[in-house]
Design a protein around this nucleic acid. Structure first.
Lengths: 238, 238
DNA sequence: AAACTTGAAGTTGTCAGACAACTACGCAGT
DNA sequence: ACTGCGTAGTTGTCTGACAACTTCAAGTTT
């Protein structure tokens, strides 16, 4: 069962860190190791991992401290999260309209981005996200039909393909998102009830599973100002 | 001098990984430890760190492998890099025009973003970046005058405040960048030779030193399409 | 001949204990 | 009040060992 000390440890340690206030000092390594039921070497590997992520800071002779959330990344673009999930965490009310789920086939662009043959059967999910009775984002997901068929979605599907895939237990790993700015096309302008050419923030991204296969090509168009996207950037490799 | 095995190891290992082709298998841990002059425990901490960064993948009983650059972050927005540095790496020729360095004082917005009192003396650096004889980005840096005075910049200053600070040896750590889209204001439109209201990708970011102090507030306005900004996003904490 | 079983060699995962290097803090001495 | 110093406590590193897993080839069975 828990024959994976490191994974279990990582979960426990993440829980401990996340519920500790900024600047809090953690127990000493020997104590923590005993408390969490692993050796000090294994604990130190997990500590090094969290240090790499910038969540803790260690000082020889002094101790290990939880770093302030000011410069912590966990709410930025580094972590893939659905708009619905972000809004929920921020206490915003969002709703979805114009949800459409269609079958389509791969054209040149889609074949390239999804790494599938031309003409491959695909499923396209489109939706508009509203907040405060105003449309703020237009989202399109395109997936291979072998991965998500039009009829795989439940009746109460609320719009987020990402949340659905995660809930289904798919082993997703990373997403490669490109960020750009664009003027609204007629299709997008109509959906968002804005003028053609109005300024939009545009993400287009590929979602990879753990084997490196592309499982979702996603496009998003959002009206600036309603969501704040930020990134914590490292200065150097180390 | 090299009384810091881990730091030295991290550099050596990064070099080894970066010059290895994707999928390449690394030597076994005992061999590598001997070769790099550290114990296996220390080596494993470094390995765990690189695994956390997604640069390598380890499989028990099988070995450690360099992961394909397809999903590697080192060229994305996760790493703070000047436009000049990016362009150089991509083989593009860029030039700078309209470079201006002025003294100013903190208004409400600047005081908030730089975390200084109202009226504090500041230095503002503005410039336009060209490629292929066309302006593509308008950049503004604002710093406390105590940190960078108007006369601290050398005669051959080529425009990148970040590169200058790094070259000066300042201990910079991270940058918190906000990404948005915006229509060109008259000032920016004039600098970039575009129409008012044209679509621009807009970053505004705070640069922190290692003590968490804000040392630079930076604004950038770039014409979409000339640079591709991407982010690798993790699906989960682990 | 093909499929399955077994075993050995090599790899990463984990553990225990020890010592070095460093920090914080109280205490004695000035 | 200040300085210097020692001591306890912390993280940094090393050594050696064994467990768990993967791979592959040789042997066995079907």
């Amino acid at each position: 069962m828990s024959n994976f000390p490191f994974q279990r440890l990582q979960v426990d340690l993440a829980a401990l860190i996340s519920r500790s206030p900024a600047g809090q000092r953690l127990p000493s390594e020997p104590d923590l190791a005993k408390q969490l039921g692993v050796s000090r070497a294994t604990l130190r590997e997990a500590m090094r991992s969290f240090e790499t992520q910038g969540l803790i800071r260690r000082r020889q002779g002094s101790g290990t401290f939880v770093v302030g959330k000011t410069q912590v990344m966990e709410s930025g673009l580094e972590v893939l999260e659905s708009l619905e999930s972000i809004a929920k965490r921020l206490g915003l009310k969002v709703s979805v309209s114009d949800l459409s789920i269609e079958a389509t086939v791969a054209d040149e662009e889609l074949a390239k981005m999804l790494n599938v043959p031309l003409g491959e059967n695909l499923t396209r999910v489109r939706r508009v996200v509203h907040t405060d009775e105003r449309p703020v984002a237009y989202l399109v997901d395109i997936l291979p039909a072998t991965f998500l068929g039009s009829k795989d979605l439940p009746a109460d599907f609320h719009g987020s393909v990402l949340d659905f895939l995660l809930g289904r237990g798919d082993a997703l790993k990373t997403s490669r998102a490109n960020v750009s700015a664009i003027g609204a096309t007629p299709e997008v302008a109509k959906a968002l009830q804005i003028q053609r050419g109005d300024v939009l923030l545009h993400f287009y991204s590929q979602l990879f599973d753990e084997r490196g296969k592309v499982v979702d090509y996603s496009l998003s168009y959002s009206i600036p100002g309603y969501f704040h996207f930020h990134i914590v950037r490292r200065v150097k490799i180390v």
